[in-house]
Amino acid sequence: MTDRAIGGKGAPVQLDKVSFSYDETPLAFDVAFAAARITAIMGPSGSGKSTLLNLIAGFETPRAGRVLIGGADVGGEPPAARPVSMVFQENNLFAHLRVEQNVGLGRSPSLHLTKTDHSAVAEALKRTGLAGKEKRLPRELSGGERQRVALARVLVRDRPVLLLDEPFASLGPALRDDMLDLVSGLHAERGMTVLFVTHQPEDARRIAQNVVFLDNGTVAATGTADDFFTGSGPPAFRRYIGASALSRDVARKRT
């Protein structure tokens, strides 16, 4: 496959004057994501973060505009044909299939695996810390382990773009840090382009090089993570961060 050939090098992702509407909420994105970087996508609920990823992955079809990956327009391609892997917040695994099968699906959608495929699966499971758990069913794993399986599948698929839609939101802080470090490690090895939707500023600060801030269905600001988190970030972003901190204080006083 062509994407395998690209594999190892991240591809730039661009949304060229993409507009979309869902339930009468108009969204408009015109933004480029640098290749081989980790970009955190932040913004209030309903600002269109997940929709942005869904447009890139091909789960949503733009009303107008182009989605470019590695310079090529992927608008007409179904999700599986795009050079993209995506990890969702939940339902990343088939509950009735074993860990190795769930990962193997990343190589062959009909689960016809060659010897090379099998060793790639075993390698990926080892890399994500799941060695010895190949035969387990998802329900026999912890929440963190399930997301590790999803990441192992990302490894065997080896696509130049990785989309993460709040995959660690339901994990505790320590576990989340472990997972972020794993993502950051995988990125260092493979150099794929990572777009990472998160609500947690500390997550973004931990692994992201760039930040794209969405508000009201459009891109409100872009910049480097350093700029965003050292106080020189755009005012809208500071309000978002500050307001959330403030509301937490109020909540604490009430209780």
Partner: peptide
């Protein structure tokens, strides 16, 4: 979504 992503059809 998972099936669409992995091309299982």
């Amino acid at each position: 979504r998972l099936c669409a992503q992995l091309g299982i059809s």
